[in-house]
Amino acid sequence: MTFMLTCPICGRRELHEFLCGGQERGPRPPQEGLSAEAHFRYAQFRSIPPAPQPEWWYHGQGCGVWFKATRNPATNREERPGG
């Protein structure tokens, strides 16, 4: 469903201005002693409950910033503080 997203710099904009970078999963783990399995789990394995999740979005057709937003895959809407 078409929805809008809040860019921290540009404000509310149409979804198609943005690119989704997927779930937030924290910074890259240290590579010293990192097992292949741990790496591939970090890189591509996800748990996707139908509940709000923090995500990374890129304002590609705008200011070019990556920012975190909370969106619910069950409703496909951004969860904004105060609605």
């Binding site: 690119l19 970078g21 990374w56 890129y58 590609g60 070019g64 910033v65 990556w66």
Partner: peptide, 8 residues
């Protein structure tokens, strides 16, 4: 996008 993503 790629640079900024990997250093976000």
């Amino acid at each position: 996008e790629w640079f900024r993503y990997h250093t976000r």
